[in-house]
Simulated assay, not measured.
Amino acid sequence: MSKLTHFNEQGRAKMVDVSAKPETIRTAFATSSVELSHELYHLIHDNKMKKGDVLAVAQVAGIMAAKKTSDLIPMCHPILINGVNIEFAWEQKNELQYILKINATVKTKGNTGVEMEALTAASVSALTVYDMCKAVDKGIVIGPTFLVEKTGGVSSADFQRNR
C-alpha cells in the first residue's frame, strides 16, 4: 500500500515537498468525452453555432486551464508547462447521438508530474463545449474523464491504462 504523502504529522493537508526530486521530462495524456445530440453534432461540425467555433474555443480553454491548474487544485504545484495539445475526435454512438472525444497531452521538464494539468485541460475543454452548446441542448453528458498515460519521473513508474 502506498504511503499518503499529502498529510503532515498532525494528519492535516500539506503540499508535498518535491525540491529533492530531479528534473526529468514528464508527460501526461488524459481524455474526456462529451455526448451530444445529432443536431448539435451537425451545428458544431458545420461551424453553425451562434457563439462561434466550439472546438476552437474549447481547445484554447483547455490550454489555458492546464496552465492554471495549480490555481484550481489546492495541493498542485505551480509548474512550468512546456507544451499542451488538445485534439478532438468524433464517434457516432447511434443514429441520435454522437460522442466528442477530447484528448489532452501536457509536457514539462520538472520535478513533478503533469497528470492534473492534463486532466484539467480535458475537463475544461469538455465544460467549454457544454457552455457553448447549452442553449441548444441542456441534456449534454460529460465524461468519463481519466488519465490514459503518464511518463517520466524517477520514483514512480510510467503508467498506461489498460483499455
Rank of each mutant, 00 (worst) to 15 (best):
M1G: 15
M1C: 12
H6T: 09
F7E: 05
F7C: 09
E9T: 03
E9K: 05
Q10I: 04
Q10N: 15
Q10V: 06
Q10K: 15
G11Q: 13
G11D: 12
G11H: 12
A20D: 15
K21R: 13
T24N: 08
I25F: 06
A28W: 08
A28L: 13
A30V: 06
T31R: 05
S33L: 04
S33M: 09
V34R: 04
V34P: 06
E35W: 05
E35M: 09
H38W: 08
E39R: 11
E39G: 03
H45V: 01
M49I: 13
G52H: 12
G52Y: 12
D53K: 03
V54K: 01
A56G: 14
A56P: 09
V57P: 03
Q59W: 10
V60L: 15
A61G: 05
G62P: 12
G62A: 13
A66H: 00
K67C: 08
K67A: 07
T69E: 01
S70K: 11
S70M: 12
D71Y: 11
D71G: 08
D71V: 07
L72F: 13
L72K: 06
P74E: 13
C76G: 00
C76H: 02
C76Q: 01
P78Y: 11
I79S: 01
N82Y: 00
N82R: 03
G83Q: 12
V84I: 15
V84C: 12
V84L: 09
I86V: 09
E87C: 04
W90T: 14
E91H: 14
K93I: 15
N94P: 07
N94E: 07
E95I: 09
L96D: 15
L96C: 09
I99C: 05
L100K: 00
K101L: 15
I102K: 02
N103A: 09
N103C: 06
T105E: 12
T105P: 01
T105A: 09
K109N: 10
G113E: 10
V114I: 10
M116H: 10
E117Q: 09
E117C: 07
A118G: 08
A118C: 10
L119C: 11
L119R: 02
T120V: 11
T120H: 05
V124Y: 08
S125I: 08
L127V: 06
V129A: 03
Y130Q: 00
D131C: 07
A135Y: 10
V136N: 07
D137H: 13
G139F: 06
G139V: 02
I140W: 04
I140R: 04
V141C: 05
V141S: 05
P144V: 13
L147T: 02
V148E: 13
V148N: 07
E149M: 01
T151D: 02
G153F: 08
V154H: 05
S155A: 12
S155N: 13
S155R: 06
S156C: 01
D158N: 14
D158F: 00
D158W: 00
